[in-house]
Amino acid sequence: MRAAQPTATTRRLEAHLHRRARWRWPEIVFWVAALGAIVVLPSRAALINEILIAGLFALSLDLILGLTGIVSLGQAAFFGLGAYSAAILASKGFADPTLGLLFGAAIAAVLGLATAPLLLRGGDLTRLMVTLGVSLMLGELANRNGWLTGGADGLNFSMGKVLGLFPIGFTGQRNAALYSFAALFILFAVARRLAQSPFGLALAAIRENRLRAGALGIATSRRIVAIYTVSAAYAGAAGALLAETTQIVSLDLFDFHRSADVMLMLIIGGAGYLYGGIIGAAVFIVLRDVISAATPEYWEFWIGALLVVLVLIGRERIHDFAVRAASSLAPDAARGDAA
């Protein structure tokens, strides 16, 4: 045992293990800037709202892909389910946004828990196909049960005020963006905490080397099921936010391209450090806005080209470069690798 007086090694060890626990100034700047954008650019509130929601959606994917290394092409299943759950609840007269948000997340979590065991066997290829299949089945289910979902016409409904005070939707777009901001920030803080816990460390171990994780006694299957459920809840919450702030849902929420887009956002921003999804969502949506203003219909080409280049250069190499660049800007903020 060590002496009661902490040694230099102990202090260094503690500092190392807690290095990400404290909020660093670049993080604070990031959140203040996001909030500031809503206040300063009220005319852009709808766009910012879209970015915040897409950012939460991408964060949900980061929990399984970035933290745990489980690939998925079916995240739209939970997004769509969350959106429809909130929409149906509201159309039945329970129009409180917070309630709808929790409800959407909870229903999506149930589906996540139910389908997580499908991910435990097989490799990445199997997982990509299974998750894709589940989301397609769900979309078809929504399509065929028009009595509940409105079918191809979608659902229109009206929402109550957030906390009974702030109207959201077309007349309250700034409120809507603030509401999404609050939800994103709270869920982000929870995810951030989770990533630094022993549970989060175990997820990183599963990503890095599942064989060794099992050899350390980690119940890898249970951990994967748990994080997949949490990720589903996050995606469901994002879907619910979109439904509530636009007050319309339609079948395209389940589309394959939703799952693909959210993966692109995460990859553009970089997976594994939680901010990547939000940054990627901002880049993706702003790019789309700018390019489609110049050449409508062809903006996808540039996103595609960006992806091809990203992969050819190597995501790892770009990430290493970014870490080095960040550490030269803020030496202690970017120390070590993202985990």
Binding site: L13, H16, L17, H18, A21, R193, L194, Q196, S197, P198, F199, G200, L201, A202, A204, A205, E208, N209, L211, R212, A215, L216, G217, I218, R223, A226, G336, D337, A338, A339
Partner: peptide, 30 residues
């Protein structure tokens, strides 16, 4: 069979918390 992007301190901490039953703790910072 190691965890390439984790540090030795993190890897060991992981093994120890898993052993003493705090491996599923998702709230306390490791």
């Amino acid at each position: 069979q190691l965890f390439p992007h984790l540090t030795p301190a993190e890897s060991l901490g992981l093994a120890i918390s898993e052993r003493n039953g705090s491996g599923a703790d998702f709230w306390r910072v490791a």
